[in-house]
C-alpha cells in the first residue's frame, strides 16, 4: 500500500512537472498573431528609412494610406519572391482600390540590400511596391517597432552567402498608422486581395 501511494505521488509529481513544462512551452512558443489579431497591440511606430531612389521617408510620409508591409531580403530565393509575387498579384486584383494602399518591401538585410540592389530586384514585381532600406540602426529600429525578428544565420565558413530568418507575414497598417492585421505572405494574390478588401471596408465603414 505504501509503495503504491509513493508511486502515485511520483506519478502526480511527474505529471505536475510535465504540465508546468507544457504551459511554459506554450507561453513561450505561442505565435504572436494570436495576440496581435485581437486588437491594437503595439505593433508599428515611428521609423526613418531610405527609399530605393535615395529619399528619406518616415512612417508619417504614408499617413492617409493603408500600408501593406513585407519584411524580406533579396538574397532569399524561395519565400521572398513568392511573397512579392503574391503582393503584386493582390495589387492587380484590387484594381482601383489599390490606390488607397501603399505596398512596402522593407529589407531585413541592409548590408547586402543597398538601394541599387533593391531597385534592380523590384523591377521584377509590381512597380507600386516601394523598397526601403537604411543603415543597420534604422533597420533595427523598424524591425523592433514591428516586432519582426530577423536573424542572419551567418556561419564561420560562409560569411557572404548567409540566409536570414525573417517574419513570414504581411503587415497591414491603417491610414492613421495603426496596426490593423497580418496575413501569411504565402497566401495567393487572390486571397490577399480579398482579405485586404475586407480589412479596408471594415475599417472605413
Amino acid at each position: 500500500m505504501k509503495t503504491r501511494t509513493r508511486r502515485l505521488t511520483i506519478i502526480a509529481l511527474v505529471a505536475a512537472a510535465g504540465a508546468i513544462a507544457l504551459a511554459e512551452a506554450w507561453f513561450v512558443a505561442t505565435p504572436y498573431p494570436k495576440v496581435v489579431t485581437s486588437g491594437t497591440a503595439a505593433i508599428g511606430g515611428p521609423f526613418t528609412l531610405v527609399t530605393t531612389d535615395g529619399k528619406t521617408v518616415s512612417d508619417e510620409t504614408y499617413r492617409g494610406k493603408w500600408l501593406l508591409i513585407y519584411f524580406g531580403y533579396t538574397f532569399c530565393p524561395d519565400a521572398c519572391p513568392t511573397a512579392l509575387t503574391n503582393m503584386s498579384a493582390a495589387l492587380e486584383k484590387l484594381g482601383p482600390n489599390a490606390s488607397e494602399l501603399q505596398p512596402l518591401f522593407i529589407t531585413v538585410d541592409p548590408q547586402r540590400d543597398t538601394p541599387v540592389v533593391m531597385t534592380d530586384y523590384l523591377k521584377s514585381f509590381d512597380s507600386r511596391i516601394v523598397g526601403l532600406t537604411g543603415n543597420q540602426a534604422q533597420i533595427d529600429g523598424v524591425l523592433k517597432a514591428y516586432r519582426v525578428y530577423a536573424e542572419a544565420q551567418k556561419s564561420e565558413v560562409d560569411n557572404a552567402d548567409y540566409p536570414v530568418s525573417h517574419s513570414a507575414y504581411l503587415y497591414l497598417m491603417d491610414p492613421q498608422g495603426r496596426f490593423a492585421n497580418v496575413i501569411q505572405s504565402s497566401e495567393g494574390g487572390e486571397e490577399i486581395a480579398a482579405w485586404l478588401r475586407k480589412q479596408m471596408t471594415h475599417r472605413n465603414g
Binding site: 533579396t74 538574397f75 530565393p77 519572391p81 540592389v117 523590384l122 523591377k123
Partner: peptide, 11 residues
C-alpha cells in the same frame, strides 16, 4: 524560377 533583377540566388 526566373530570378528577379540582379538576384544573386535562384531556386
Amino acid at each position: 524560377r526566373a530570378t528577379p533583377g540582379g538576384a544573386k540566388t535562384g531556386a
